[in-house]
Design a protein around this nucleic acid. Structure first.
Lengths: 341, 341
DNA sequence: TTGTAAGCGTTATCAC
DNA sequence: GTGATAACGCTTACAA
């Protein structure tokens, strides 16, 4: 017989032997089962405490076929947005007595697949996933579904018909951002947008034009530039916007990093921030509060709250609060936060 | 007999039955055991693939008494420093086929205890822990030790004699920082330090005075201010430093946030950054690369690498590469990074 | 090359 | 109130 390395941890078997009672009695005593005599209960609990008994969860997980563990797959744990999101996820999981298993894909589809595989093998009860930038094949998620492991997609969601998802719509926030600038009297508002293909870019562009329509102003597509989000790309975009005949007095930038690069460029051109030119951005980072020239306002995406929402959705599904084919979807509204510094 | 809810997942038992062979043969075939006939191996693997068989890790964990899981307890998942650290931890764990169980204490000792308890019950193979600010009682960690679950402390390490730890010494980086400023010709260098009680403050102060001694310059304690790291505290400290008779031309700030606040203050006083006054800081954030007036140089603490180091240390311990009472300690050296922007 | 069976720690069913 | 025992899925020593 294989001799398993005794972990030194006491088991109910051992307690039973020492007290000359059966394991079932010990198990029941520890669970405060009503049918167990007070005297026995006390003796069992006392000895358990004395031996530092701790129940072996791996045995219970195995036995019950449930792990009270949820798998989280995110592209980058060190990105501020996702870091906040994990924080919200962990907090919510924790207060519901669930544990969090963590993986990061680094936007690598192969690694994403491996992590999902590993989570499946771990028999996590469910997953929360933000997919990689280049992920186009979703078979690993379909396998999760086959294994009846529910998945809630989050922020970066795939283009699939039937899925649970939590995401944030940037259109509303963008409308607010442009509104804000219009109210400040700006009439020629530029936008440094992201790559045309991204959903997020489309939402921003939609918000921009909707805001102008709302105010019965003409929408000039020349004012929106699709950039690649690098510093060079931002400089190019700035150069273009500042060269336009109509003088651009405000710019909505794709994110805080772009905003900071744009500010740098403007400073080099001897423009005074918030006077010659005003910036509004999207809050992907806690940075903006600390920079010398933060954007005048930021569209908040509430990553912490999105994490909470995704976790609550998953827990509801695990608790059987929805039929299996009843796909949940929460779209949070982004919101403009005006900085007063 | 209790009818366990069938998870729908096929087991080796099922494969065995279908092929009319024994479970052990199936198990061995799936493990490429040498004693299994090629023909059988092929048949087993084929059917396994067909049924989408996936081994039940919970059963294996239970059976082997090992989970290939490590528990990570950090104060705040959303702090940039820790977010980088988790990223390094996860990457290292992943490439060694370990999984990461995550918890955040929010600097709350009670929550810290609960999480450690939960990890113990999960039977994690080991833990990596950065303790909360106010944690003074370490009995939960002693219990881990009793359960023979090794712990590697990281960054915020407790004041205990016998423990494994990875941390970063700020003294060396501070020496380099002051050296750097001296070489630039600065002779009156201020320091906005943190609270006197913090180890990190002491290391900074020690580095400061050591650098001056090295250059046979007089150490003037008036030039070091202990501040509380708030914006108000920083302004006060700046006011004090700028009011000194000897004209301060450079300042070492406790961290990037303090640096940014200090820069703001300097700008208000119409000082020109990097000309009238030069700042050097400690890189707690990826921010500095993006601010309008980043510090001229930063003392790097390499959180990602610290995370890697802690994980490698833990894995070495788990692999029995050290005797149980052979406490490991890695002290990484901080290092000055000069920005050239 | 394959089969048999014990055992990991726990819970639940059934019997007394 | 309590005990005996099967079962969860898998691995492995030993037998054949």
């Amino acid at each position: 017989m294989r001799k398993v390395v005794s972990s030194g941890q006491p088991t109910i078997k051992e307690i039973a032997k020492r007290l000359n009672i059966s394991v079932s009695t010990v198990s029941r005593a520890l669970h405060d089962h009503h049918s167990i005599g007070l005297r026995t209960k006390a003796r069992v609990k006392e000895l358990a405490a004395e031996l530092n008994y701790e129940r072996n969860q791996t045995a219970i997980y195995f036995q019950q076929g449930k792990t009270f563990t949820i798998g989280i797959l995110l592209p980058e744990l060190s990105e501020a947005f996702f870091a906040s999101a994990i924080s919200g996820i962990e907090d919510t999981a924790y207060s519901n007595n669930y544990t969090v298993l963590l993986g990061q894909s680094h936007d690598d589809e192969a690694r994403e697949k491996q992590i999902i595989q590993s989570m499946k093998q771990h028999r996590v009860d469910g997953c929360i996933v933000s997919i990689g930038k280049n992920t186009s094949n979703y078979e690993h998620f379909e396998m999760l579904q086959q294994a009846r492991i529910p998945v809630v997609f989050f922020d970066r969601i795939p283009d699939l018909p039937d899925m649970h998802a939590v995401s944030c719509n940037l259109e509303s926030g963008t409308v607010q951002a442009v509104d804000f600038l219009l109210k400040q009297g700006h009439r020629v508002i530029g936008m440094i947008n992201g790559p045309e293909t991204m959903v997020a870019s489309k939402e921003r562009a939609a918000g921009y034009s909707r805001a102008l329509h709302k105010h019965r102003l003409k929408y000039d597509p020349k004012l929106i530039v699709n950039a690649d989000l690098t510093n060079a790309g931002t400089e190019e975009a700035m150069q273009y916007l500042l060269s336009l005949k109509r003088k651009v007095t405000a710019i909505v930038t794709f994110n805080d990093y772009v905003a900071m690069d744009a500010v740098q460029y403007a400073l080099k051109q001897k423009l005074e921030i918030n006077k010659d030119i005003t910036f509004v951005s999207y809050a992907n980072t806690p940075v903006s509060g600390y920079t010398a020239f933060p954007p005048a306002a930021s569209v908040e995406q509430f990553p912490y709250e999105q994490g909470q929402a995704a976790t609550n959705m998953l827990l509801a599904i695990l608790n059987g609060e929805h039929a299996l084919n009843d796909y949940q979807r929460t779209i949070m509204e982004s919101q403009l936060v005006v900085h007063n510094r």
